[in-house]
């Protein structure tokens, strides 16, 4: 049965981007205000889910050609290597480095290796959530 869901599809296009922007915001804000890689990842996944709702799984696969298991693995590796970088400096594992920089446009910004770790978390969360939803969705 074909249904007319132009409204949904159009709205989704806009809303998805809003959600993604919000996800990015919440991911970066995490170090100073509530948020972080975890919630960011979940929000990103919700955006993709919304896409899946509006379109269908195959289409979304074409739009976002990502193997989510690999995404999970990449996330894990990023998190692991961020933490493991300290091994090469012979300081305890997980020792982070950060500094404050004056960047144009952003002003005083802190660059923190923890953010990189959080990126790993983010990717894993997106990867796993999408793996779960996609496999169940396809199996139905």
């Amino acid at each position: 049965m074909r249904t007319n869901d132009v409204m949904l599809k159009t709205a989704t296009k806009v809303v998805t981007f809003i959600i993604l922007m919000f996800a990015v915001h919440i991911f970066f804000a995490g170090h100073y205000t509530p948020g972080g890689g975890f919630v960011g990842g979940l929000l990103t996944a919700s955006a993709i889910v919304l896409l899946m709702l509006a379109y269908d799984i195959e289409t979304v696969k074409k739009i976002i050609p990502v193997n989510y298991v690999m995404l999970t693995a990449i996330g894990l590796l990023i998190a692991l290597s961020t933490a493991a970088a300290s091994i090469f400096f012979n300081v305890p594992f997980f020792t982070h480095a950060y500094d404050y920089f004056d960047l144009p446009l952003f002003g005083k910004t802190s660059l923190h290796s923890a953010a990189l770790f959080d990126l790993g978390v983010y990717l894993v969360v997106v990867g796993v959530t999408m793996t779960i939803i996609q496999t169940i969705g396809e199996d139905e």
């Binding site: 995490g30 170090h31 100073y32 996330g75 998190a79 692991l80 933490a83 770790f117 978390v121 796993v128």
Partner: peptide, 28 residues
Amino acid sequence: GGNIVNVILVDYRGFDTLFEITVLGIAG
């Protein structure tokens, strides 16, 4: 950092988080 909970998660006790996402990954 400013968000203490987040800093605990990624820094003070980041090790927990590393394996927490491992758990997630395995679940996936």
